[in-house]
Structure formats: C-alpha cells, structure tokens
C-alpha cells in the first residue's frame, strides 16, 4: 500500500523529513508555491502533481493516523485511572476521531481550494480565448467594411475626381466628407436635427 519508491512521499520518508513536512504543513497551511520552496530547500524539487499526490498518499494517511493515535495516548495518560471503562473508551475514541477528522478535513479543504484555483485559471484562459476570437471577428469585419467602402469609392466618379485633384490632403478629406455626408449636412441645415458638438 506504500507509494512508489520514486514518489515524493517515499523520498521524504527516506530522508526522515516526512513528519517535519506535515507538521510544517499543519502549522502553516502553506500555498503550493511555499510548499515547492520548502521542498527545494531540502533538495527535492517537485511538481504540483507530485505535491498533490503526496497529500493523497498512504504515507500522509499513516501520518494522520499516528498524530491521532498520539493525541489519544496523551488523553489516556491524563484521564483519571478510576474512570468508568465505557466512558473512557468513548472519550478516547472521540479524541482519536476528532484529531483524524480535523486533519483529513484540512487536507480536503486544501484540495478544494486548489481545484477552485485551477478552475479559475481555466476560466480565465477560456475568457482570453473568447476575447481573441471576438478580436479576430471584429478585424475581419473591419477589413470587409474597408474593402466594401473601397469598392464603393472606386465606383464613384465624383470621389475619384476629388482624389485625383491637385488639392492638399486636408482639402481632399474635407471635399470627400462634404460629398459623402451631404445628406447629414442638409438635415442639420434644415434645423430639424441638432447634431452633437
């Protein structure tokens, strides 16, 4: 039931660092980045997946079990000797299960946080993809519109006449504007519509 000999759990156990790692994890509840840093310091650089597997390993479960058994033994030593056997057993069982439950619950919560983080990340990636697609669509539309406008302009003799004239660029733009927006200018001149400044 032990993890593979090349797993992070097995490596930590061989180095005698498994207890130290989990005691640190319990006290600090560090982020994945901080865990990586800790493992780097003890010359065990590890991936996110390796850390994930470490916390799900049988070695981690054995550590939780040992921590709970230790808490049970401490309570056993401190309970009055003449305590009713049934009450003693119930209290000790409760103590073991309380510690074990607390540790496994914390592991599970960490797991949910990691999953939520990775879901947020994939959601962000998806959003980025949608934005890129929208940008590509709008670029296509703009190019299409430009080509359409060019064709319209090319067909329009008056516009060509303006473009070929010896006027300055600013005058050409003003003349083209007057040509293409003459209906708007007429509407404004009629007083029926007030254009924004």
């Amino acid at each position: 039931m032990d993890s593979r000999s090349d797993s992070l759990a097995a490596k930590l156990q061989r180095a005698g660092l498994l207890d130290e790692y989990f005691a640190w994890w319990l006290a600090e509840r560090p982020s994945i980045a901080a865990r990586k840093e800790w493992l780097d310091k003890v010359s065990m650089p590890s991936s996110n997946a390796a850390i994930h597997n470490l916390h799900r390993s049988s070695e981690a479960a054995v550590w939780r079990n040992a921590a709970a058994a230790k808490a049970r033994a401490t309570m056993d030593a401190n309970l009055p000797k003449n305590l009713d056997a049934l009450i003693r057993k119930s209290l000790l069982d409760q103590r073991f299960n309380h510690v074990m439950g607390e540790l496994s619950h914390k592991e599970l919560m960490d797991q949910f946080v990691l999953e939520a983080d990775s879901e947020r990340l994939s959601l962000k990636r998806e959003e980025l993809g949608v934005k890129r697609e929208a940008l590509a669509i709008s670029r296509d539309r703009m190019e299409h519109e430009t080509c359409k406008k060019f064709l319209l302009w090319f067909k329009d003799a008056k516009a060509r006449e303006i473009a070929d004239s010896g006027l300055s660029n600013a005058d050409k733009i003003a003349a083209l504007r007057a040509e293409y927006f003459k209906d708007v200018d007429a509407l404004e001149a009629s007083g029926g519509v007030k254009l924004p400044d």
């Binding site: 799900r56 479960a61 439950g101 496994s104 619950h105 592991e107 599970l108």
Partner: peptide, 10 residues
C-alpha cells in the same frame, strides 16, 4: 464521517 472524509481523500 471521518471514514468518509478519509475515503474521499484517497
């Protein structure tokens, strides 16, 4: 409850 949490972890 503890058993369920442990099994979920595994």
């Amino acid at each position: 409850t503890v058993l369920l949490t442990e099994v979920r972890l595994m």
